[in-house]
Structure formats: C-alpha cells, structure tokens
C-alpha cells in the first residue's frame, strides 16, 4: 500500500518536471538577454568574479551591474561565472576565452596571475582586469585612483570629526589598499593637520572576517576616534556593526564606506559617506571601445576623479554639512586641474 503511494508520488514528480520544463522554456523567451526588443549586438562579454558573488555589494556586483547596463543599452550578450575555489578561476576564464567571447573581465587583484597565464596561452583573446596591472599585449588593465577619492573622504572626515581623532581599517596590506590609506591621510592633512597626526591605522590581514573588523573598530573607537574609513571588504561589515552598537549606546561615531554606497546597506545613521569606485563605469567604458577597435589592449587605464572612476557617494548630502561639501568640490577641482597631486604611496 505504502509502496504504491511512493511510486505514485515519484511518477507525479516526474510528470510535474516535464510539465514545468515547458514553462521554464517559456521563461527563457522573455529574458531580456535574448529578447527581441533591445538593440542587437554580436559582441559577447564575460565576467569572472573574484572569490565572491555578483551580489557581494562590492566591486563584483558593481562590475556585473556595468555589464547589465551594457546589455540593456547595446544588446551585448553578457554572462558571469563565480569561482568558488582558487583552482576554478582558470577554468572559468577559459570558459569564456575558449568559448569565443570577445572580452573577458576579471575583477580583482587575486586574478592577476591567472589572467596573465590565460592571456599568454591565448594571444588572440582579449581580457581586462580591474585593480591589477597585467603586462600582456592583449590585456587591458584598469587601476582606480583610490587615493584621489580617499582624499575627498579624508577632507570630509577631517572637517567633520569632533574629537580630532580618526581611524583607518584595511584588509591585507596590499599596494591597492595602501592607496586608500595614503590618500585618506593626505585629505585629512589638508584640512585638519592635528587629526592627521591622530590617525590610527589597523590592517586586519583579512578581507572576509567580520569579527576582526569589529574588534579593530572597537580598538579605534576606544582610542577616542569618531570616524573610521575602511577598505577591507567583508571585514568592514564588522566596522559597521561596531559603529551601530556604539551609536545605539549614544556615542557619536561614523563609518566611511568603500567601493559602493554602503549607506544603502548599513543605513545612513552610521554611514557618513562612502568612497565609491565606479567599477561599472570602467567596465562599460572599456567594453564599449571594443566596437571601434580602440580596445586599450596592453595599456593601463587609470580611473580617477577626472574619469569619474572614483567619487564620494551621492547620498553624502544627507550627513555631511553643506559647507564641508563645498570644500570637497573645491578640492575636487584642484585635483582634476592638477593643482594638487595626491600621493599614492
């Protein structure tokens, strides 16, 4: 009796599968990627994320959003792959390269070696990498002038702090992260030399340990600082958590976010502003250059304030005083003009 029941269920599951498979196929047709209404292009662009996902609320997501925009505007076919282990990065890059994609993006510093290898093995393929410089005739490298954006948030921090003490939390002590710190320090220095002297810097040696970010933030806040700028990926979530707890206890502390507008994730009651990297812009701009055969292969593109590669978050108006923002604009102009040269190391 019972056995028959199970067989029946098994059978109905199978039928269901078949029926729904049909529905699934229908779904596919309404997919904008293959839909007929959007403009059409033969270009195919792929993205291999860093060890993270396209929902990481950071540069992987930003890069994917760029590609999606490209798809909607130009009808380019886009796809992403998310490696889960280091060893999967190369096969994922190969998937696009060997699959005849016109361009393969790799987001992140850790992709440097794999990109270099694949570029060497496939001289006819085009690749692009963000946050690292790969010397190869068929790779376009994109470096952001994080120090320029960090300078601006440094100005904000220097003018906003009440205690004249500030903090910086970094992930691994890499050149790219160092740029954040140095630019930030220069920005503070420009408007508030005393606070620049009292800048406490902690590197957590980790981009994914919330607990470490929390304890680093706690150390800095205990030391009397009221604003922390972080450049530490997921680790930074801990900085936000610590700030939130302190805010709830009535302490007047702030966090400056990084990469994307983090006030959207962590709320504007603790997020003073964010130093945003417009990875999406970079991805769009460089991918577009495929069409006119102007693809900057073998070159490094620097995305600074001028190129709109870095900026402060648009929501900064909420917590930053208007006179401070005015100052920011002043410095922005100076940097773009070349009046001020922001140090990067």
């Amino acid at each position: 009796m019972k056995k028959k029941g199970w067989l029946l269920m098994l059978a109905s599951v199978m039928v269901l599968t078949l029926v729904l498979s049909g529905c699934g196929a229908k779904n596919k047709e309404t997919d904008p990627a293959t839909g007929g209404s959007a403009p059409k292009s033969d270009l195919k662009v792929g993205l291999v994320t860093d060890l993270g996902s396209v929902n990481d609320k950071s540069f992987n997501q930003s890069a994917w959003e760029g590609l999606q925009k490209l798809r909607d505007e130009k009808g380019v076919s886009v796809k992403y792959m998310e490696p889960k282990k280091d060893a999967e990065i190369i096969p994922n890059l190969n998937q696009f390269v060997k699959g005849g994609y016109d361009l393969t993006w790799a987001t992140g510093f850790t992709m440097m070696d794999p990109v270099k290898q694949i570029a060497g093995e496939n001289p006819n393929a085009k690749l692009a990498i963000i946050d690292a410089e790969v010397q190869a005739p068929n790779v376009a490298s994109v470096l952001f002038q994080e120090h320029e954006g960090s300078f601006l948030v440094g100005v904000i921090a220097g003018l906003t702090t009440k205690t004249n003490k500030l903090g910086f939390v970094g992930g691994l002590e890499l050149p790219v992260i160092k740029r954040f710190e140095v630019g930030f320090r220069a920005g503070v220095e420009a408007v508030n030399p005393e606070a620049a002297k009292n800048l406490k810097v902690i590197y957590t040696a980790d981009f994914s340990r919330v607990d470490k970010g929390k304890s680093a933030a706690s150390t800095i806040y205990e030391g009397g600082a009221d604003i922390i700028f972080h450049a530490s990926g997921m680790t930074g979530n801990g900085v936000f958590n610590e700030a939130k707890e302190r805010k709830q206890r009535g302490e007047n502390v702030w966090v400056i976010g990084v990469d994307m507008d983090q006030s959207l994730t962590f709320g504007d009651e603790i997020t003073l502003t964010s130093m945003i990297k417009r990875v999406d812009n970079a991805v769009i701009e460089i991918s577009k250059q495929l069409e006119g055969d102007k693809f900057p292969a073998g070159k490094t593109t620097y995305m600074g304030l001028k190129e709109k590669g870095v900026d402060i978050a648009p929501t900064s108006t909420k917590n930053v005083a208007p006179e401070v923002l005015e100052k920011v604009e002043e410095y922005r102009t100076k940097i773009i003009n070349g009046e001020i040269k922001v140090p990067s190391e």
Binding site: V13, M14, T17, L20, N27
Partner: peptide
C-alpha cells in the same frame, strides 16, 4: 537530480 530539477523549475530555470 530530480528534486534539484524541481528546485530549478520553481526558480524559473531550465533543469534539462
């Protein structure tokens, strides 16, 4: 595999 397929169907993807 079968149940995985159902999950994909629910998510609107094509299991086959």
């Amino acid at each position: 595999l079968l149940i995985g397929a159902i999950v994909m169907l629910i998510g609107g993807y094509e299991p086959i």
